[in-house]
C-alpha cells in the first residue's frame, strides 16, 4: 500500500478528511522552507504539497507567482528540491509528499530519471498543472514503474461526459480545482462543493482533495468534510510573505507563524 493510500485509509477510520498544506520549496530560502516542511506533520498536516517553482506559472495567482520568483532567486532547482524531500524522509516515513508544479522542469530533467530519483527521495505523487490526461502518457509509464501517483485534476469545466476520460487510470487521490480561475483568488461555496463532489464520486472511488481558494479554517473544514481533503496554499504563503523583512528574508518568528496557521487549519479539519 502506498503512503497516500495508507494515509487516506487511516483518516477514513478516524472519520475525517485530510489537511494538505502547501509549501513552496526555497521560498524565501532553503532553510525556511525546510523548517516549514519538517514542522508541518506535527502541526497537523496529513499530506504535504511541495511547490516546484517555474518561471511561467500560468495557473497561479499573484501570491504563488511571487513565491516562485523568490524561490528561483534563492536557487530552487529540482535536484535540490529532491534533496529536501530526502532530508524530510529521514525524520518522517509516513506523511505523503506530493510535488506540484509545471511540466517543463520535469522534461528538462528527463521523465524517466526524474521519476526514479523522485521516488527514491521519498516523493509519493506528482501534480503537473499543465499535463492534462490527453498528454499524460508522456510520463505515466515512468511514474507507474516507480510507484509515483500522477494526481489528476478535475475542474468545474470538466463535464460528466469528460470525467471518465480524465479519471481513467488515475491513482492516489483526485485534486478538485474548485473554482474556474487561478490560485488564491476566488473561493467555492459549500453548496458548490456539495454539488461537485458527488459528481466525481460517481466515477471514481479515489479520495478527493479540494484546492484553489481554500483559505480559512472554516473553509478547510467544509472542504475536508464534503470531500476527503483540503489543500491550503496561498493563505499560508500570504502569511509567510507578510512576515518577510524589507530585504525579503524570513524573520526568526516567520516559520512559527505559518505553522500556527497550519495548527488552526488542522484543528478545524479535525473538528469537522
Amino acid at each position: 500500500m502506498s503512503r497516500i493510500e495508507a494515509r487516506f485509509a487511516a483518516l477514513a477510520t478516524e472519520g475525517r478528511g485530510a489537511l494538505i498544506p502547501f509549501v513552496e520549496a526555497f521560498d524565501p530560502d532553503r532553510e525556511t522552507s525546510m523548517a516549514l516542511l519538517a514542522g508541518m506533520p506535527s502541526a497537523g498536516a496529513d499530506l504535504i504539497e511541495i511547490g516546484v517553482p517555474f518561471t511561467d506559472p500560468m495557473a497561479d495567482g499573484p501570491t504563488i507567482q511571487a513565491a516562485g520568483k523568490r524561490a528561483l532567486a534563492a536557487g530552487a532547482k529540482l535536484p535540490r528540491i529532491l534533496d529536501m524531500v530526502r532530508e524530510f524522509r529521514r525524520a518522517d516515513a509516513a506523511t505523503p509528499i506530493i510535488l506540484m508544479g509545471y511540466l517543463n522542469p520535469i522534461l528538462a530533467y528527463g521523465p524517466p530519471r526524474f521519476c526514479a530519483d523522485a521516488a527514491a527521495a521519498g516523493v509519493d505523487g506528482l501534480i503537473i498543472v499543465d499535463l492534462p490526461s490527453e498528454e499524460a502518457d508522456l510520463i505515466a509509464a515512468d511514474a507507474a514503474r516507480h510507484g509515483l501517483d500522477i494526481i489528476r485534476l478535475v475542474a468545474p469545466t470538466t463535464d460528466d461526459a469528460r470525467l471518465p476520460k480524465v479519471l481513467a487510470g488515475s491513482s492516489g487521490f483526485i485534486y478538485y480545482v474548485s473554482i474556474t480561475g487561478i490560485t488564491g483568488t476566488r473561493t467555492a461555496s459549500g453548496a458548490q462543493l456539495e454539488a461537485a463532489v458527488p459528481r466525481i464520486r460517481r466515477v471514481s472511488s479515489l479520495p478527493i482533495a479540494v484546492g484553489f481558494g481554500v483559505r480559512s479554517p472554516e473553509q478547510a473544514a467544509t472542504a475536508s468534510r464534503v470531500a476527503d481533503g483540503a489543500v491550503v496554499a496561498s493563505a499560508l504563503i500570504d502569511t509567510l510573505a507578510a512576515d518577510l523583512d524589507a530585504e525579503g528574508r524570513a524573520r526568526p518568528g516567520t516559520v512559527g507563524k505559518v505553522l500556527d496557521q497550519v495548527r488552526a487549519l488542522a484543528a478545524a479539519v479535525r473538528a469537522g
Binding site: A59, P132, E134, L153, D159
Partner: peptide, 20 residues
C-alpha cells in the same frame, strides 16, 4: 489528431482550460 506536428504541438493546458 492530438495536435502534433511530429513530436511538437499538443495541448499542454490546465484541466480547467482543456474543455475550452
Amino acid at each position: 489528431a492530438r495536435g502534433r506536428f511530429g513530436a511538437y504541438g499538443g495541448r499542454f493546458v490546465a484541466e480547467t482550460l482543456m474543455p475550452l
